[in-house]
Amino acid sequence: MTELGLEIALLGAALAVGLAGIGSAIGVGIVGQSAAGLVTEDPDKFGQTLLLQALPGTQGIYGLLAGFIIMQQVGIIGGAPLNLTIAQGYAFFMAALPIAIVGLVSGIYQGRVSASAVGLVAKRPEELGKGIVYAVMVETYAVLALLASIMILFGIDLG
């Protein structure tokens, strides 16, 4: 008898990739807007602002990472899809939630901080490092969420 476990697990993977990706897309978008404004005045700041723009992009990568691990574990990638019980499916779904939720919100907020850091770089290019540190304070929580997701994923009993 086939159960819905696999589908629930894949819903988790989709949410991890999708929501964290949305967070990053919004964050990167916000930074890109202010960066483009600065570069109209000073084209030589392109490199520095690109670095700042890349910062809120990591949430999307973390989401993809969690999604990828789920796909690998349930056999969508590199193997035959497993026949999961509904309980197992929910376990994967829960595992995806931390990075999906935190990735969405922290990506947006990290984008805002990075956009302010673009303003910082406009006036004081030598203080790029401090702008990055502020942005990374936000990312901490995405990293912790990713860690929680990974811990749950590796703890799921597929036996």
Partner: peptide, 13 residues
């Protein structure tokens, strides 16, 4: 713990 998370992220990506 971020050390582990980032190390895993590099490897898994």
């Amino acid at each position: 713990s971020r050390l582990l998370a980032l190390g895993l992220a590099t490897g898994v990506i």
